[in-house]
């Protein structure tokens, strides 16, 4: 090997492994997270309750959530982005002279990588509690649909989200294809073509899920969603033995929920989430006489 081995930097000596780890991190865990994240978000199309129950499941990790987030999402993403920027810095795109499909994809892969990076930082600060000092952190895990719907309500924000989501999805789907070449999964031109169909299918599915989530949030009746979420939140608190949230504006059992009368039944669609929502939800107003809160629990 090189005679002055020790004089080379750590990065130079381990370039191959670092680049392979970079490639792997795009799929596991970053890409895997992206898939789960987009599919979870798409559940908003099934109604506020359906999305809320999935969010509750994730937040069921409790104190583990933060270390899990950092170990499996943020740190791998930062690693992928750091090496990614180094790779971009080392290349010299030339689509102008060589406008081939592969080359356009190569260039788009870099462009979408940078867009995705900027988008994800913005997105995290805007929704994740870490962004609170900056006026962000607007996602309320106990009011998943309504708080997210409020964020994307302005059309411009929705459009920015659509661009961000599509860039990220392209980067992932195209990365899937190049990754198969990098690791030697598909080697012949025919196999690469078949793999290309696979990556197009994955990309289309994820793009539909991502855009669907944005559309679903935009179509949400925020007040009705908030009512569903509040009820679910109260039940959660009940199960955990906490008092109902004083801030959540919980309607007393039996009191009509705001927005309930404005034809919001369709938007709430309790049926689709019924398998996930515990049976503790009070019957809609006007049905049976309201039971006192904890009663059904003791009945079991």
């Amino acid at each position: 090997m090189t005679p002055n081995e020790s004089s080379r930097s750590f990065f130079a000596r381990n370039q191959f492994l670092i680049y392979r780890l970079f490639s792997l991190s795009g799929l596991i865990p970053v890409g895997a997270f992206l898939v789960v994240h987009l599919l979870t978000n798409a559940s908003v199309l099934g109604g506020a309750a359906s999305f809320q129950s999935r969010v509750d499941m994730i937040h069921g990790l409790g104190p583990l959530l933060v270390p899990v987030e950092w170990a499996f999402i943020f740190l791998p993403m930062l690693f992928h982005a750091t090496v990614g920027f180094m790779i971009i810095g080392g290349g010299l795109p030339n689509v102008g002279s060589y406008p081939y499909v592969g080359n356009i994809r190569y260039t788009l892969q870099r462009a979408t990588g940078m867009i995705a990076f900027a988008f994800i930082i913005w997105h995290v600060l805007q929704l994740h509690w870490m962004g609170e000092p900056l006026g962000g952190g607007r996602f309320d895990p106990h009011h998943a649909t309504s708080s997210a719907a409020e964020v994307v309500a302005p059309l411009a924000i929705s459009l920015l989200y659509a661009i961000g989501v599509l860039s990220t999805v392209f980067h992932f789907a195209n990365g899937l294809w190049t990754q198969g070449i990098t690791w030697g999964l598909w080697t012949s031109p025919q196999a690469m073509r078949r793999a290309n169909y696979l990556s197009i299918a994955v990309g289309t599915l994820l793009a539909a899920a991502g855009l669907g989530a944005i559309g679903g949030l935009r179509g949400t009746d925020t007040a009705a969603a908030r009512a569903v979420e509040t009820r679910m939140d109260d039940q959660r608190r009940l199960l955990e033995g906490q008092p109902p949230s004083p801030l959540s504006g919980t309607p007393a059992p039996g009191r009509p929920v705001p927005g309930r009368d404005s034809g919001a039944e369709d938007a709430i669609d309790l049926r689709s989430g019924s398998d996930l929502v515990p049976l503790l939800i009070p019957e809609p107003a006007g049905a049976v006489a309201p039971t006192t809160g904890p009663a059904p629990l003791s009945g079991n």
Binding site: M1, T2, R8, A12, R13, Q15, F16, Y19, R20, I87, G90, G91, N94, Y98, Y100, G102, N103, R105, Y106, T107, Q109, T178, I181, T182
Partner: peptide
């Protein structure tokens, strides 16, 4: 090694 196959970006030019 350094500068090896890992540098390829699959542009296929």
């Amino acid at each position: 090694d350094q500068g090896g196959i890992q540098m390829c970006g699959n542009a296929q030019n």
